[in-house]
Amino acid sequence: MHNITENSSSPASPAENQSADLSYAQKFQQMDKEATAVIIAALLITAFFWGSIYLFKDSPAEFLALPLWFVVSCLGGYLLSIAAVWVLVRRFMRNFSLD
């Protein structure tokens, strides 16, 4: 309890630190990193999509009456995308002033 209040009232909370500290050049370093992370995430989603089609395309199994390959690749890929963006914005992308 004590810790929580201390963190939220402290001026040195991580989010504020980041926006105050980045210089113009540092923002560009950060943006290059973020763009790389986003492209890697998109490639991983692509790989997952085609990997699951390759693995399950001949499987007779069904889920909710839908073919298994479809459920894993299309519906699973959709959920994976949402999860990937969640991780990207939480872990890899930082807040800073755009000016």
């Binding site: 986003v38 692509t46 690749s73 890929g77 995308s81 992308m93």
Partner: peptide, 12 residues
Amino acid sequence: APQIITGFLILG
């Protein structure tokens, strides 16, 4: 299906 990445790719 590729449009599962379209929503975030250009923004990211």
